[in-house]
Design a binder for these strands. Structure first.
Lengths: 312, 312
DNA sequence: ACAAAAGTGTTCGTCTTACACCCATGC
DNA sequence: GCATGGGTGTAAGACGAACACTTTTGT
């Protein structure tokens, strides 16, 4: 910490976006930095203890949160931690590897849970990504007016076209997978708190969703987009479901993740066509109304074979 | 190098799969390790000199090979360099970040080219991935018989089903994007040289494509799969084309990358529907036959907007 | 019996796939 | 004038999107 002997140490950090769904709410495991901003759980990679990056990640997530991770996928490696390292820097340069991990909501409380950690709804950080009840209110109220001003400062129509394309304006289809691109557009336009913090803009502060520390909201955006895309070609949704579930519950979960409303009949036909589930024989007696048949995921079908997802 | 003072240093290596296409041959830039096996070009990441990983990559590739990189995309970060680091290891632990990069074949020869470096056809390393002239001959001759034996040693039918699915057996469609999964299956089955080298098998040697040093063939497989997938939703193919090209040349390039034969008429309609190209007005007078109209990529359409690819 | 949620059958339009033919040039 | 590759129109089929209605329970 004092002697600047080796030129610069390199440290590898692992940052995880740990996702669960409760009811119709997609959740993300966060902790809280000193400044009060939410952070994603982060741990160091120690090559002495762990053979691979993923094993290292599983180990410290288990130690710190007790959340048993199901599916884990590497997202991206970030080498630029905000600023450029300079000769003479005594802090080690941190390279961080972002991960997406899925866990079941019921298993939320492990033994040794970090008291600061907790699951939060991910749309609190990305209110413009929830289109389940149609176009989000925030969008027309605050986001689009300010984005239009920003796009207007562009000589060509490139910004305007990008805006139209990414936010599904005048007839353009909304592509829910482009979460990261939307976040980056808002960052460029100086409308998210992170852009102010990084000194990229002088725009007045605006609460466009809650900010996160470092570039963690960017990592979360990457995770959301990746998960939304993955749903369609891999059966990862079942990592978020309990052992037995109704088809409506499955649909609610897919809707929660993808942020869009789905057609009930088409969804059911789709699920049936994939043959990924089978009835357990039991029924769930809901609050009021007809009881629903319970299904389970046919793990055997997928075990060793690349299996399809739900192309919603 | 002698005193084991800091517990273990971590080093970050950048490994690039640099792709070009000449005529109908997809090429990969390789160099040669001491043992004679081909390697992908690799360089260290120095956080003092470069702000981001990608800038670091571009810098040393430019220095060493003179190849001007167009599109660059991060693939994956590998933490396990074959074996587990142990306390007392004096070598720094190397974590490597794999990249896919595209360059134009014509620009192949830069100034300060490494004499050992050169472009090689990528199907020399992956003969089973070239389905342009129908199912590859090697497949039925040597690969499938040995894989069938391997699958037969499985009590369930999981291996057999996976085999059927990945290699497009009896009616199953061949999915050209699953390059990595096919390579990993061959590795598991002990049929590639790398599996023998890692001590994973006692199978007799077999020349199933040329082997590469370290896990470089695995990185190349990742790059191939990613590029094949990317073609379909981003206009990256034009990074491999000269400024002006005929539609047939474009089709040959797409076919070279994706490893499949395409329908001429459908390909043309597809290209037209995307509006990604426009005629230059000139024609190319080929060896024999009707001259072909030349086209150029409409860079303006894509400049700032997420644009579609060629969904072949 | 009535509300509330589960569950199903059918039609319509678009997008993909395939086939067969004509055109312009060099030798 | 014929071989060679360039270029196009049209029909059949597959797939996804939208629709409205019946069924079964709890209160």
């Amino acid at each position: 910490m004092s002697a600047p002997q080796p030129p610069l140490t390199l440290e590898l950090g692992l940052t995880a976006a740990i996702v669960a769904v409760t009811g119709d709410k997609p959740m993300i495991l966060t902790t809280r930095a000193a400044q009060g901003e939410a952070t994603l759980p982060t741990g160091p990679f120690d090559p002495l203890r762990h053979r691979t990056l993923e094993l290292g990640l599983r180990a410290w997530v288990d130690e710190q949160t007790g959340a048993p991770l199901g599916y884990v996928e590497q997202l991206y490696t970030f080498g630029d931690r905000g600023r450029h390292a300079r000769a003479g820097d005594r802090d080690p340069h941190v390279v961080s590897v972002g991960y997406l991990a899925l866990t079941r909501a019921s298993a939320e409380r492990g033994g040794r849970a970090d008291p600061l950690a907790g699951f939060r709804g991910w749309y609190e950080f990305f209110p413009w990504e929830d289109w389940r009840a149609g176009r989000p209110a925030d969008l027309d109220a605050t986001i689009l007016p300010r984005l239009s001003t920003w796009a207007g400062r562009d000589r060509g129509a490139q910004r305007a076209e990008r805006l139209r394309f990414l936010f599904g304006l005048d007839g353009a289809p909304f592509d829910e997978e482009r979460t990261l691109e939307r976040y980056e557009l808002l960052y460029e336009a100086g409308l998210v708190e992170e852009a102010r913090r990084d000194g990229r803009t002088r725009e007045p502060a605006s609460r466009l969703g809650e900010a996160m520390a470092f570039d963690h909201r960017r990592i979360l955006a990457t995770a959301m987009g990746r998960l939304r895309a993955k749903l369609k070609y891999r059966p990862v949704i079942f990592e978020l479901m309990p052992a037995a579930f109704t088809l409506t519950a499955l649909q609610r979960t897919v809707e929660a993740i993808s942020g869009r409303h789905l057609h009930k009949q088409n969804f059911r036909r789709l699920v049936e066509s994939t043959a990924l589930v089978e009835p357990t024989g039991d029924t769930a007696h809901a609050t009021g109304g007809r009881p629903a048949a319970l299904y389970r995921f046919r793990r055997d079908v997928v075990a060793e074979r690349p299996a399809p997802g739900l192309r919603v």
